[in-house]
């Protein structure tokens, strides 16, 4: 027999914003009105985010991404942001179909904030990483249509007192990376670059340099990835996540390091 207060209990278990939407506002959930009219595998030409990466360094994690969105062989946007703050101690870098990916980042950010406000405490980093995995799994039908979203999640784990990086596959599978990870069309080149340059416990200055070297390498080899744009003054987004929170690396600093990398490469070519 159902007692009058049973429902209250179920209701109180809903600290999840996604569950709240599913129950009360299903029309607001991403991918709610998907109808499978296209045959599976039909590519849809929408803007795609290209290269994002995350790497561990001495104080925590650095996340970075180029600024270009690419649709087919065209530049869809030159100034898109791919690294989002999800709460004080975590961030997500999006790669894949830009629209659904941004929607997912926004939902994920609201999810974390909702939990924090209702419970009065934040989720553990593991909890956050699992939650994002579930959201990616929800996107699987859209992924079959070519709208693949594969983010990188990184954050500072307060319990373990270290930065951690998680990568995902399209089915929502979650894998932890201990050193560095890159996603998107230029990710293979960025990973190759990181493989040679990354060292354990790099200080901030060196880690920033390694980050930008990897992004510049990705832009060099992959047509979809945008390099530092000196003409328009567009530089990659770089964010740090440490025990003191989510921070921006100022654009001036990014610009300075990018220019240093390019100057060095010019010299190498000339010699």
């Amino acid at each position: 027999m159902e007692r009058s207060w049973d429902r209250t209990f179920n209701d109180y278990l809903t600290t999840s914003f996604t569950d709240l939407l599913r129950r009360d506002f299903p029309q607001l959930l991403p991918g709610a009105q998907q109808s499978g009219t296209l045959p599976p595998g039909t590519p849809i030409d929408v803007p795609h985010g290209t290269t994002v990466l995350a790497l561990r360094y001495h104080d925590g994690v650095i996340m970075a991404g180029d600024r270009q969105a690419t649709a087919g062989y065209q530049v869809a946007s030159r100034r898109i942001e791919k690294i989002f703050k999800t709460d004080d101690l975590s961030g997500v870098g999006i790669a894949g179909a830009a629209g659904p990916a941004m929607e997912m980042a926004k939902l994920f950010q609201t999810e974390l904030e909702h939990y924090e406000k209702v419970e009065g405490d934040s989720l553990s980093l593991e909890g956050k990483a699992n939650k994002l995995g579930m959201m990616i799994r929800l996107n699987l039908p859209a992924a079959m249509q070519g709208l693949v979203v594969v983010p990188i999640f990184a954050g500072f784990d307060e319990k373990a007192q270290l930065g951690r990086i998680f990568k995902y596959d399209v089915t929502g599978g979650r894998y932890e990376e201990t050193n560095y990870e890159a996603q998107g069309s230029g990710s293979q080149y960025a990973r190759d670059s990181l493989k040679k340059l990354w060292r354990r416990d790099l200080p901030r200055e060196d880690a920033l340099r390694v980050t930008l070297e990897a992004l510049i390498d990705a832009a060099d080899e992959d047509v979809g990835t945008g390099g530092p744009d000196l003409v328009r003054g567009i530089f990659p987004t770089v964010r740090t996540i440490t025990r003191s929170g989510f921070g921006d690396v100022p654009e001036d600093e990014v610009k300075r390091v990018c220019e240093a990398v390019l100057v060095e490469r010019t010299k190498q070519e000339a010699s």
């Binding site: 914003f17 709240l20 939407l21 009360d24 506002f25 607001l28 926004k106 939902l107 609201t110 904030e113 909702h114 406000k117 209702v118």
Partner: peptide, 14 residues
């Protein structure tokens, strides 16, 4: 309080 958070988060999200 919880109803208020739900109301605001849904509104801000949509």
């Amino acid at each position: 309080r919880i109803l208020g958070i739900r109301h605001s988060d849904v509104k801000g999200y949509s």
